[in-house]
Amino acid sequence: MTVPVLSAKGVSIEYRTTPVVRAVRDVSLTLHRGEILGLAGESGCGKTTFAYGLTRLLKSPAVLTSGEVLFHDRVGGDVDVAALDGEALRAFRWDKVSMVFQGAMNSLNPVITVRAQIDDVLTTHRPGMSRAERAGRAAELLGLVGVDPARLDSYAHQLSGGMRQRVMIAMALALNPQVMIMDEPTTALDVVVQRGILREIMRLREQFGFAVVFITHDLPLLLEISDRIAVMLEGEIVELDTAENIYERPQHAYTRRLLESFPSLVGERGGFVRSGAAAGESGTGHAPGSDADAGPGAAPADSADSAADTTIEGTA
């Protein structure tokens, strides 16, 4: 279980803009074979940039400035991902490491059928396969992710959000990769649909033994599925531990703050403020300072949520 499959050492990524933005700072991380590693953090913490760095998907002006990424192939030796280019890089992606992105609608080609898209992946990477073999594999893949193979001839817009994401997972599975990188694959979906897809991912992981880097801001979700969780803040991994330890014994203040942001559904209230008359009448009131908002000390803390996205200009 503790055989490494992908390791990053001292990875730094910058956006070469003015001024330079250091999106990922000296991050080292080892992904073990078959594990689910959660990468938690908020928008702008560099988690997606880091994932792009792992797969050499960075686009200008993002540049990997230092560090190395090694892929430890199941057969054969180590591959220096940073040194790959051209054909070797193409083969590496999908074949060894595949990706599932947020927003399947944008990742699926709207003008060709699901079958044609899966076919495309197979013809590119498995030129030896016959037409019949490819058709069989496409149907098999959809079956694996719980989509009726009759859907092969559908276009993206004919599928529900959940089905689209399942199709994306099927495509990522197509070449039996050793690592799958999933960036917020279920964020836009309703919880029930999300649950179904997560369950599918977990089952497939057990069946095929690939490792998963699962990126999301949804810490409770990560806690339920991950073996280990890395918490990212300002381009650095501030804490990396098993899911259990992250929940029971968080070390870093930021991890604790993230955890506190998600009150437990069925557990105790903890410090979460209960509003309304009922709480007021009960006489317990609120512990002093429990509603940090109310205290005079709130102001500085308050204004701190400023800097984070002041630079983001109007959103469309």
């Binding site: 956006y15 001024p19 933005v21 250091r22 999106a23 908020e42 928008s43 702008g44 913490c45 560099g46 988690k47 997606t48 940039t49 792009y52 960075l58 686009k59 993002a62 992105f101 803040l233 300002e234 381009g235 930021y254 703050r257 506190e260 942001s261 410090g271 979460f272 403020v273 300072g289 429990s290 509603d291 940090a292 908002d293 709130a298 803390a301 308050d302 701190a304 949520d305 400023s306 800097a307 984070a308 996205d309 002041t310 630079t311 983001i312 959103t315």
Partner: peptide
Amino acid sequence: ATEASAPAAVPASPAEPKTEVTV
């Protein structure tokens, strides 16, 4: 910063939001 769209860029002084959280 390019907003949430794909590669999330980090603001120059990436002061992560530090808001009040009830303890």
